Amino acid sequence: MKKIILLSCIACFLLIGYQPVSSAMATQTTTQQVPSYAKWGQLAMKRTKEAYPKAEIVDYSHLGRQEGPILTTEKFRLWLKGEDKEFGVNVTISFYKETEMVKEVKLEEVKRKAKGKKRR
């Protein structure tokens, strides 16, 4: 049985063609898949979990980056599901450009617009 499986695997490699990936190509692929803001997104999620420990983060969005001469700011919106409601939290992370040392993390709960009657 083991011989059949081994022979099948070898046949698949021969039919499909085996092309090993160089370490440079693997590194390039990995680098392309990790966005530059990933590190800050993890911090945004961590701080949000600390502020809302009973809520579950159900969605995550990077809103953008703003670069200044000294500080860089990353903005995120996280969507949370609590026991009785769903709500958004805007997270703004400011850090020093050269050292990447965090200056400030702000969390602001997103207020939903009330649904009202349409005007005629």
Score class of each variant (00 low, 15 high):
residue 27 T to E: 13
residue 69 P to T: 13
residue 33 Q to C: 00
residue 26 A to E: 14
residue 93 I to H: 00
residue 88 G to M: 08
residue 85 K to D: 03
residue 46 K to N: 11
residue 104 E to Y: 00
residue 103 K to G: 06
residue 105 V to R: 03
residue 49 K to D: 03
residue 87 F to H: 15
residue 44 A to G: 05
residue 3 K to F: 15
residue 92 T to M: 10
residue 101 M to V: 12
residue 27 T to K: 07
residue 58 V to W: 14
residue 35 P to T: 06
residue 26 A to W: 07
residue 7 L to P: 00
residue 22 S to I: 14
residue 64 G to K: 05
residue 35 P to R: 07
residue 52 Y to C: 05
residue 35 P to E: 11
residue 70 I to M: 07
residue 55 A to S: 10
residue 56 E to Q: 15
residue 91 V to M: 07
residue 52 Y to I: 07
residue 72 T to N: 12
residue 29 T to Y: 08
residue 57 I to R: 00
residue 37 Y to L: 07
residue 28 Q to I: 13
residue 77 R to A: 09
residue 79 W to V: 10
residue 74 E to R: 03
residue 22 S to D: 13
residue 18 Y to H: 03
residue 109 E to R: 13
residue 88 G to W: 01
residue 77 R to L: 13
residue 15 L to S: 13
residue 2 K to G: 10
residue 14 L to T: 14
residue 71 L to C: 04
residue 96 Y to E: 08
residue 70 I to G: 03
residue 41 G to A: 06
residue 56 E to Y: 15
residue 48 T to S: 01
residue 58 V to A: 09
residue 64 G to Q: 08
residue 11 A to L: 13
residue 116 G to F: 03
residue 108 E to H: 04
residue 14 L to F: 11
residue 94 S to Y: 00
residue 112 R to M: 09
residue 62 H to L: 11
residue 118 K to M: 06
residue 51 A to C: 10
residue 16 I to T: 12
residue 25 M to D: 14
residue 115 K to W: 14
residue 100 E to W: 01
residue 71 L to R: 01
residue 48 T to A: 06
residue 24 A to I: 10
residue 117 K to Y: 05
residue 117 K to D: 08
residue 111 K to F: 05
residue 28 Q to R: 12
residue 93 I to L: 11
residue 114 A to H: 08
residue 47 R to Q: 10
residue 5 I to A: 09
residue 76 F to G: 04
residue 19 Q to I: 06
residue 88 G to T: 00
residue 68 G to F: 06
residue 95 F to P: 01
residue 4 I to K: 08
residue 77 R to Q: 15
residue 26 A to C: 04
residue 77 R to I: 06
residue 111 K to W: 02
residue 116 G to A: 04
residue 18 Y to K: 00
residue 61 S to N: 09
residue 24 A to W: 00
residue 107 L to S: 13
residue 86 E to D: 12
residue 22 S to C: 09
residue 21 V to A: 08
residue 78 L to I: 01
residue 41 G to N: 05
residue 80 L to V: 00
residue 118 K to H: 08
residue 79 W to L: 12
residue 11 A to E: 01
residue 84 D to F: 04
residue 91 V to H: 01
residue 75 K to M: 07
residue 84 D to Y: 03
residue 13 F to I: 00
residue 88 G to F: 05
residue 107 L to N: 04
residue 1 M to S: 06
residue 13 F to V: 03
residue 77 R to C: 04
residue 105 V to G: 02
residue 18 Y to F: 14
residue 12 C to S: 15
residue 42 Q to I: 08
residue 4 I to N: 11
residue 66 Q to H: 03
residue 13 F to M: 09
residue 91 V to A: 06
residue 110 V to E: 12
